[in-house]
Simulated assay, not measured.
Amino acid sequence: MTTAEDIEKAVEQLPAPELARFRAWFEMFDADRFDAAIERDANAGRLEAFAEEALAAYRAGQSRDL
């Protein structure tokens, strides 16, 4: 099995064009993983407390326009 250290060493050896390609791929891979985790948490109701807290702060005038 490949370790993170093995992967790091392989990435260090990539020529610039391949590094750019890898970077773009990894950015999409990481974003997709993050989005999936947020979706799972939302579907499981794990974000409800955060939403309620934000709405309560808004109702209490403790928020500001961005």
Rank of each mutant, 00 (worst) to 15 (best):
M1H: 07
T2I: 08
A4W: 11
E5T: 03
D6M: 06
I7E: 15
K9L: 08
K9Q: 14
A10G: 06
A10W: 07
Q13D: 13
A16P: 06
P17R: 13
P17K: 13
P17I: 10
E18R: 09
E18N: 05
E18S: 08
L19M: 07
A20M: 14
R21A: 14
R21L: 14
F22G: 00
F22H: 04
R23G: 00
A24P: 00
W25D: 08
E27C: 06
M28R: 13
F29W: 15
F29V: 03
D30H: 04
R33Q: 10
R33T: 04
R33G: 02
D35V: 02
D35K: 08
A36E: 10
A37F: 02
E39V: 03
E39H: 01
D41Q: 12
D41K: 14
A42S: 07
A42V: 11
N43M: 04
G45E: 01
E48N: 03
A49F: 04
A49E: 00
F50C: 02
F50N: 11
A51W: 01
A51Q: 14
A51P: 00
A54N: 14
A54D: 12
L55M: 08
L55K: 14
A56N: 07
A57D: 15
Y58N: 01
S63A: 14
R64G: 08
R64S: 12
